Amino acid sequence: MKIVIAFAVFIGLALTPARALPHLTIDLDSGRVLSQQQAFDPWHPASLTKLMTALVVFRALETGAVSADETVRVSRNAARQQPSKMHYAPGTLITVEDALKLLIVKSANDISVALAEHVSGSVEGFARKMNDEAARLGMTGSRFINPHGLHDQRQVTTARDMALLISVLHKNYPQYADWFAAPGVLAQARTKQGKIIERIHYSYNLLVERYRGADGFKTGFVCASGYNFIGSATRAGRRIAAIVLGRSSQTHRAVDAAKLITGGFELSTDAGTPLAELKPDGTPATRPANMRPRLCTPEARAARYEPGAGQAVIKSPWLDERTPRKITLRTRFATKPKGVPRRNVPLPRFRPTPIDDTVRATSAAPIQLPTPSFRPGTALN
């Protein structure tokens, strides 16, 4: 524990007027916490929520409840979500696999809702699955209301709970690691004129392309939460992740995460405390901080450096100059056919015989319907 405390002093992170901003650094291979402060404080997760959304869908794929090439339909409810989003029109169809790529890399809120509705029938039903997963993992400080992280005061997590979540993603789902490490995704769509266009959607993970070995995970921002970030890097076969919450800008969160990860690599593999044994450093806060008064005034917005995704220029001893990587992650084109159901349900082989309306209206005798070709209990392929 002395190592953890010394490391927390070493990195010297910014403070709020009342409490230190939460952070936690973890060796994902050993499961040992290398540094932490206020890791049990409740915090609004913003788009870090999508890590749980991804986990629920991964579980559904694992159990066979859904398949990767199954089509997801963008509903009107999904299409009306606030940005960041893909702006796909209602009725657009994409596969589950492509929806996951856009969820993870682009952080698309409309796709989050489309996936939730596809997997569970409704956002509410999907949120129940999210909370069931959180309970199963021991995320005792977390509650999920929606799959994207757009602000709801009831939606909360902690740095410690996020460490549990990314530990599961790291250990149980390595097949998706490249998606979390991607600097961007090439997404195709069809225009109203029928032309297929392709556009790069860059990740807001500013460690990717700027920090040696960077390979995950997710960013998040709403005014109430401030700038949240979970970043990770692998060097010499060792993977270190840092969770930082409530920072003042995109660059602030990236630099703080880089400091923490660098400090983690400097510690021995047996340093720190097992995550399962971690205790609060003092009494946790009773409610999430509200960063809106600090970060979302006109003055604060005007003073803040807010580059577009893929355009940030950062001068920091903790980060390298950006070295752009080729974008190889792709999605297929999205379509908007008419009359296609949400799921690919096969049509039955039998068809009712049409009955003439004039016969239906004038005949007093009982109408003789044709005997169906199927019988109850007979499986239909």
Rank of each mutant, 00 (worst) to 15 (best):
V208W: 12
E209W: 02
E209C: 13
E209H: 13
E209M: 01
E209V: 06
E209P: 11
E209A: 14
E209S: 09
R210P: 03
R212G: 12
R212K: 15
R212L: 14
G213Y: 05
G213M: 01
A214I: 01
D215V: 04
D215C: 10
G216E: 03
F217D: 08
T219M: 08
G220S: 01
F221M: 06
F221C: 08
F221Q: 07
V222Q: 04
V222P: 05
C223V: 04
C223M: 04
C223A: 10
A224Q: 15
A224L: 06
S225L: 04
G226I: 10
G226F: 05
Y227D: 03
N228P: 06
N228K: 03
F229D: 09
G231T: 05
G231A: 11
G231M: 01
S232V: 06
A233C: 11
A233Q: 00
T234Q: 09
G237C: 06
R238V: 07
R238H: 12
R239A: 09
A242M: 01
A242Y: 06
A242N: 04
I243G: 15
L245M: 15
G246E: 08
R247W: 08
S248W: 05
S248R: 12
S249G: 15
T251H: 12
T251K: 15
H252S: 15
R253V: 10
A254P: 11
V255E: 12
V255F: 14
V255I: 15
D256H: 11
D256I: 06
A257R: 05
A257S: 15
A257K: 05
A258W: 02
K259F: 13
K259E: 00
L260I: 04
I261T: 03
G263I: 04
G264P: 08
G264A: 00
G264I: 02
F265D: 00
S268W: 04
S268Q: 14
D270R: 11
D270C: 10
A271H: 08
A271Q: 03
A271V: 02
G272P: 01
G272I: 03
P274R: 01
L275H: 01
L275W: 03
A276V: 13
A276D: 05
A276N: 07
E277Q: 15
E277W: 12
L278F: 10
L278E: 04
P280Y: 09
D281K: 10
D281I: 07
D281L: 09
G282R: 05
G282F: 01
T283Q: 11
P284C: 02
R287V: 07
R287E: 10
P288N: 05
A289W: 11
N290A: 02
N290W: 00
P293D: 03
R294W: 11
R294N: 13
L295I: 06
T297H: 05
T297G: 11
P298E: 02
A300I: 01
A300N: 09
R301A: 13
A302L: 10
A302R: 10
A302D: 02
A303K: 14
A303T: 04
A303S: 15
R304V: 14
R304L: 10
E306W: 15
P307V: 09
P307R: 08
G308S: 12
A309E: 03
A309P: 09
A309I: 05
G310D: 02
G310Q: 08
G310M: 06
Q311G: 07
A312L: 04
A312M: 08
V313M: 12
V313E: 14
I314S: 13
S316I: 08
P317R: 13
P317Y: 11
D320N: 12
E321C: 13
